[in-house]
Design a protein around this nucleic acid. Structure first.
Length: 272
DNA sequence: CGCCAGGCCTGCACGC
DNA sequence: TGCGTGCAGGCCTGGC
C-alpha cells in the first residue's frame, strides 16, 4: 500500500537509473489500469529521453522530451528497474525498455494504479492541478492547517486524508500521526486549536520522515529488489494493532470505521 | 464461499 | 444559484 514515503523511496530508487536515459520500447501487456494506458504511448515514447523523476503527492512524474509520464501506484503497484530480458510475471502490466538493456517494470495486481501522458505543464493536468500542499514543505505549517480547518466539521482523520488539502497522507500514516499528536481521530477538525494543529502537522512530518528514512536503506538494492522498498520494515504505534496493548500506555487499541476506512487509535492516549 | 484491505476519482445530496 | 463540503460507490485481486 504505497503511501508518500513508499512513493518517495521508489522515486529515489528510480532516479539514478532513469535520468538521461533514452526510452527504446514501450510494452503494454494489460492497459486496463484505473484508466486505460494511452494507446499512443507505444508510438510516441520511443526515442524520447527522460530528464527528471519527480514526485507530486503520490504521483511520480517522468519528465520527457515531449511531455511527462504520470505514474501512480494505486494500492498494490510497484516499480522496479530490472534486466529487460527478465521474464514478466502475472501482474507485470507495463515496461519501459531503456537503452543499455534495463527496463522499468510496473507490477500492479489490483490495477488501481495509473500510467498517463501529459503534454505541456504536467502540474496543470486535471489529476494534479487541485492537489493540496506537500506535507514535507514549509507550506504545510501549523498556522496554515489551523486556518484551513476552521470551516471543516468532519472528523480530523478524514480531513487529514483529503488530498485536496494536503497530499500523501493515507490511511496508515493518518492513524500513526494522530497517535503521535495524541489527537482522537473522531474530533471535528474545526474544534482543534492552533497549538494542537501545530502538534499534528509536526507529527505528520515526523511520521513521514521516519518512514522515508527507513525505506532509504533498501535503495541500494532497488534493481532486482522486491519492489516494495521499505514497506516491510514498518513499526506501527496503532495501525493494524486492534486489541493489542498501546506501546505508550498499555490500553487496548480500538478499531472503528470512518468514511469506510479503518481507524485505529488508543482510547487513553487519544482521549480527545 | 464471502469479506476485507487500500487510493482516490466520480457523482450525488446537502446547507449556507 | 453556486460553491464548499461530506458521503457513498466503484474499480480490482489476494489472503483469510
Amino acid at each position: 500500500m504505497p503511501e508518500l514515503p513508499e512513493v518517495e523511496t521508489t522515486r529515489r530508487g528510480l532516479e539514478p537509473h532513469l535520468v538521461n536515459q533514452r526510452i527504446m520500447t514501450v510494452i503494454v501487456r494489460n492497459p486496463r489500469l484505473r484508466w486505460p494506458i494511452p494507446s499512443q504511448l507505444a508510438a510516441e515514447l520511443p526515442g524520447q529521453r527522460i530528464h527528471t523523476v519527480q514526485r507530486r503527492g503520490k504521483y511520480l512524474l517522468l519528465d520527457c522530451d515531449k511531455g511527462s509520464l504520470i505514474l501512480h501506484l494505486g494500492m498494490s503497484g510497484s516499480l522496479r528497474v530490472i534486466d529487460a530480458a527478465t521474464p514478466p510475471e502475472k501482474h507485470d502490466h507495463f515496461d519501459l525498455l531503456l537503452e543499455g538493456g534495463a527496463a522499468m517494470r510496473l507490477r500492479d495486481p489490483r490495477r488501481f494504479g495509473a500510467v498517463l501522458w501529459a503534454k505541456g505543464d504536467v502540474l496543470a493536468h486535471p489529476l494534479l492541478a487541485s492537489l493540496g500542499v506537500e506535507p514535507l514543505t514549509e507550506d504545510f505549517s501549523g498556522n496554515w492547517f489551523y486556518t484551513q480547518t476552521r470551516t471543516r466539521s468532519a472528523p480530523i482523520k478524514q480531513v487529514l486524508m483529503d488530498s485536496h488539502l494536503v497530499v500523501g497522507v493515507g490511511n496508515i500514516y493518518a492513524n500513526e500521526a494522530l497517535f503521535r499528536a495524541t489527537i482522537n481521530p473522531k474530533t471535528a477538525a474545526n474544534r482543534i486549536g492552533l497549538e494542537r494543529c501545530t502538534k499534528l502537522v509536526e507529527a505528520v512530518q515526523t511520521t513521514l520522515q521516519l518512514s522515508i528514512s527507513a525505506g532509504g536503506s533498501s535503495l541500494r538494492d532497488f534493481v532486482d529488489s522486491n519492489g516494495n522498498p521499505g514497506y516491510f520494515q514498518q513499526q506501527y504505534w496503532v495501525y493494524g494493532r486492534t486489541g493489542l496493548t498501546c506501546k505508550q500506555c498499555g490500553a487496548a487499541i480500538s478499531q472503528i470505521k470512518q468514511g469506510q476506512r479503518s481507524t485505529f487509535y488508543c482510547p487513553r492516549c487519544q482521549a480527545r
